[in-house]
């Protein structure tokens, strides 16, 4: 996993609330058996016509979206399916952080495992950010993971929550699997004292 420390970037605002995983990446693009090129499918049906031509009014097709690493999304982002293709598509496009008022549980968990930072802000800050970004499209935000601070250009800052374990993994760029593997003695002890309830291989 890529490490995430500090990020300063312009912002793509998509204010729709409860953006679901089928919007982020429609199911028909889930037939891939690898993670290659997922950026092409990001927001596919809002971004492209049936024939594949871009829809100019959609923000990701506008010059202002180029190089943006922060997505400012409407309330309650990532609802719906468990598809990790959603954070794969977002990161492949170049996003490293999504700001919203809340995140669906599975999306949040998936994002954290792909070095995509879910930044939860209070509703009033969320509203203010949309106003600021609309007023100044070149506005840059800074997200510092170590201090858990989101800083606005005027110097105003707001802290955001993240569990310490996920934070340390992201700062160091390490996959969480290693931690579980280190608990092997405990896992063995658990298995020894908890016989399997089902054996799927039994004939």
């Amino acid at each position: 996993m890529e490490s995430f420390t500090k990020l300063t970037s312009r912002v793509v605002p998509i204010p729709n609330e409860s953006i679901d995983t089928d919007i982020i990446i429609p199911a028909r693009y889930l037939k891939a058996t690898d993670k290659v090129g997922m950026d092409r499918f990001l927001f596919r049906d809002w971004r492209f016509n049936e024939d594949g031509t871009p829809i100019p009014s959609f923000i990701l097709n506008q010059p202002r979206a180029e190089g943006c690493k922060i997505l400012l999304a409407g309330k309650n982002f990532g609802t719906g399916s468990s598809r990790e293709h959603a954070p794969w598509a977002l990161t492949a496009f170049g996003f490293r952080a999504v700001i919203s008022t809340s995140f669906a549980d599975i999306f949040r968990s998936n994002a954290l495992k792909n070095s995509l930072l879910p930044v939860v802000v209070p509703a009033d800050v969320h509203e203010e950010l949309f106003k600021l970004v609309e007023a100044d499209q070149k506005l840059e935000l800074t997200i510092d993971l170590a201090s858990q601070i989101l800083t606005l250009p005027g110097g105003k800052s707001v802290s955001f929550p993240i569990d310490n374990f996920s934070k340390q993994c992201m700062l160091a760029g390490v996959d969480q699997l290693g931690y579980i593997q280190k608990q092997d003695t405990h896992i063995r002890a658990f298995e020894a004292s908890h016989p399997a309830m089902v054996v799927t291989t039994a004939k």
């Binding site: 399916s81 468990s82 598809r83 990790e84 954070p87 599975i106 968990s109 998936n110 495992k113 792909n114 996959d175 969480q176 699997l177 579980i180």
Partner: peptide, 9 residues
């Protein structure tokens, strides 16, 4: 439900 990285875990 879990994501693919967790499926791997």
């Amino acid at each position: 439900g879990i994501g693919t990285t967790e499926v791997e875990h």
